[in-house]
């Protein structure tokens, strides 16, 4: 997450976004979005990137359908094979099909991306940002200070620390639930892993978004149309929802699009260290960690069985690259004045 994250942060911080003037205050219409979409489509590279992203995500979503083998099925008579008709990307040391593992790994990435954004960035980040920006005063001060403490940690350390600390507790908790309710699959399906990773990534995701939204709201709340609405006695939630939120959507979209690559990379790093997704469930990070023996064998693998390393890496690479292109384009399209 280190790099993309830097990117994302700098983006949030850039003066260009900070002093972005509100869009006059009209409620954004369907037509407005259609125009933006048309603008976006004109950017060929961004459009292609969006298609790549969609394609990759679809692979993940439909993993159970398009898999050619079982992701955990070992076949010790077909280990370390190169790509073939039966194994499109070849097989790993245990004879498992790399193509199948990659698509399942993508599914893991999709799930983690969605959950950590849904909870951290969007739900927490946006709502807290709205509250802080609108109410200001003590609410704002407390939120900002807490956020500063959390974000003062070196990100990667905090994420690893959280994942290491939380996992055993969460897993135990889930087992207790399973045992007492007779439910099954809570742990084995990987749900606990997603929750742990999602929570561990919270500090990475919520504060940046919160600060962004808050900054926008601070400007917007002084806007004439908001003042007018307030004067007319419109309730606070309504002002926030109807008048302010729509105008913060653009920067949120831009920020999210820059952050998604970072989330994918975070999962890879966590799983690489054995703190993310648990075997036998595959993830891109698990695959990279396994095949490089946590880094030590990376050179040898790259030399002798490059497909084993490249299969998961190229997916991560494409995702980060494409999201950055898309983010850039969205930034241009949604915030024309920022350029």
């Amino acid at each position: 997450m280190t790099n993309s994250q830097k990117f994302e942060r700098s983006e949030n911080r850039s003066p260009m976004l900070k002093d972005l003037p509100p869009d006059g205050g009209q409620f954004k219409t369907r037509g407005h979005w259609r125009k933006i979409w048309a603008n976006f489509r004109r950017r060929r590279l961004a459009f292609v990137s969006l298609i790549i992203i969609s394609f990759i995500y679809l692979l993940g979503i439909f993993a159970p359908v398009i898999q050619t083998h079982d992701y955990q099925e070992t076949n010790l008579r077909e280990t370390q094979q190169g790509p073939s008709a039966d194994h499109w990307f070849g097989t790993d040391r245990a004879g498992r099909d790399l193509y199948t593992r990659v698509v399942w790994g993508i599914q893991t990435t999709v799930i983690i991306t969605v959950t950590s954004f849904a909870t951290g960035s969007l739900l927490l980040g946006v709502s807290i940002g709205l509250a802080a920006g609108y109410f200001r005063g003590w609410t704002d001060a407390i939120i900002m200070r807490v956020g500063e403490v959390v974000s003062a940690f070196p990100d990667i350390l905090l994420i690893i620390l959280l994942a290491a600390t939380l996992r055993p507790r969460f897993v135990q908790f889930a087992r207790d639930i399973e045992d007492s309710t007779g439910m099954t699959g809570l742990v084995s399906s990987g749900i606990v892993d997603y929750v742990v990773i999602g929570v561990a990534l919270l500090p990475l995701s919520w504060f940046g978004m919160m600060r962004l939204v808050r900054g926008q709201v601070l400007v917007l709340r002084e806007a004439e149309y908001v003042q007018a609405a307030r004067a007319m006695g419109t309730s606070t939630p309504r002002i926030l929802y109807r008048h302010i939120l729509p105008n913060v959507v653009s920067p949120i979209i831009v920020s999210v699009s820059f952050g998604i690559g970072a989330i994918a990379l975070s999962e890879v790093i966590l799983s690489f260290f054995g703190l993310g997704v648990q075997p036998p469930r595959p993830s891109l990070g698990v695959m990279i960690g396994e095949v490089t023996a946590r880094g030590g064998a990376s050179v040898s693998v790259l030399r002798d069985h490059p497909e084993q390393l490249l299969a998961p890496i190229i997916v991560v690479w494409l995702l980060i690259f494409s999201w950055n292109i898309v983010g850039d384009a969205l930034n241009d399209v949604l915030n024309p004045r920022a350029r």
Partner: peptide
């Protein structure tokens, strides 16, 4: 674009590749 490609390149690839 080429800088963005390099930017997105995961270190898990860059490092072993440079060493190799």
């Amino acid at each position: 674009i080429s800088m963005l490609v390099l930017y997105a390149m995961p270190v898990f690839f860059t490092a072993p590749f440079l060493i190799l």
